[in-house]
């Protein structure tokens, strides 16, 4: 009974073989997106819109509040920003800050790198890194400032010391976990080419762990920037030419609150630029291109 049914069903559908035809060139069939859709697809534009919105809210709120000592308007802040940029004061302060920062940040990276390389090559190095990060990572950098002042005196060396402390541990942790996460297969490939020691580290481990390393650098950057401003705010008073933190402190004392806001705005802008321009640029040319991050 059932066999007859199958046969009849199969008879309804004939068997066939065919030559495939050339596919339709889909690439040529393009449909133009509307202007709004095209603009909305640009992430920078969307984020820019949010920024403009925030500025508008700021302006409306401050105008209504009408208290320039507590909360100056956006337009006053921008005006002040223009003035201090023109006079060169803000630029000098920013450069001072960035100079201190780059010294400390680079030293921190080198220190973290050295510690991690020792950690992955020797067992006692692993223990050393794990113990040190466990001890020092939770310790706020600012808590070390009094000691730093005692050891290094007033001025940049103290600030550099606390920033190095702030960046070394998170960077080291990230590099280390990156190295540990490198697949066994890749390690074996490296060994197959007889790569050992530092050649193995630089030619296999570092590129293979680059996504983690970059995360570490980003976290380290944020930590160092925050620590720098905080340290300058607290102790920048005594150093000859202060940085941005000192600029904010000074303007508050002079009751130029719109300039305090201008200083804060500068810190934000630098942070955003480094994150979204410099690190994005590095990411696009490395981990995103390699398919290690999307």
């Amino acid at each position: 009974m059932s066999t007859t049914k199958t046969i009849t069903l199969n008879n309804l559908r004939e068997e066939y073989e065919r030559e495939v035809t050339a596919p339709v060139a889909h690439q040529e069939v393009k449909i133009e997106l509307s202007l709004f859709e095209r603009l909305y697809n640009i992430s920078a534009l969307r984020k820019g819109f949010i920024l403009v919105l925030l500025a508008v809210i700021w302006q409306i709120y401050a105008v209504n509040l009408n208290n320039e000592l507590m909360f100056p308007t956006f337009s006053d802040t921008i005006k002040g920003l223009g003035q201090v940029i023109q006079s060169g004061e803000l630029v000098n302060r920013t450069l001072t800050s960035l100079k201190v920062l780059s010294i400390a940040y680079t030293s921190g990276i080198l220190l973290a790198g050295t510690l991690t390389v020792i950690a992955i090559t020797t067992r006692i190095g692993t223990d050393l890194l794990e113990t040190l990060t466990a001890m020092f990572n939770p310790l706020p950098a600012i808590a070390l400032l009094p000691l730093a002042l005692l050891w290094f005196g007033l001025g940049n060396p103290s600030i550099i010391f606390v920033i190095i402390h702030a960046v070394t541990w998170p960077i080291a942790l990230n590099i280390y976990s990156g190295f540990m996460g490198v697949s066994n297969t890749l390690r074996m490939v490296g060994k197959n080419y007889e790569l050992t020691g530092l050649r193995f580290v630089f030619k296999i481990l570092i590129p293979a762990a680059f996504a983690h390393i970059l995360t570490g650098l980003k976290v380290g950057w944020a930590f160092s920037w925050r620590t720098l401003i905080a340290a300058e705010l607290v102790f920048g008073v005594s150093s000859g030419s202060g940085g941005l933190g000192w600029f904010i402190f000074e303007k508050k004392n002079q009751l130029d609150i719109n300039l305090v806001f201008a200083g804060l705005l500068t810190i934000i802008i630098i942070g955003v630029v480094v994150e979204n321009v410099i690190f994005k640029f590095i990411e696009k040319r490395t981990v995103i291109k390699w398919g290690m991050k999307f």
Partner: peptide, 20 residues
Amino acid sequence: KKPGSDRGMVFQEFDQLLPW
């Protein structure tokens, strides 16, 4: 006694190529 390029290896895993 140790790994060497006189014994080239091909692995099962697809991640054996250097992704960079």
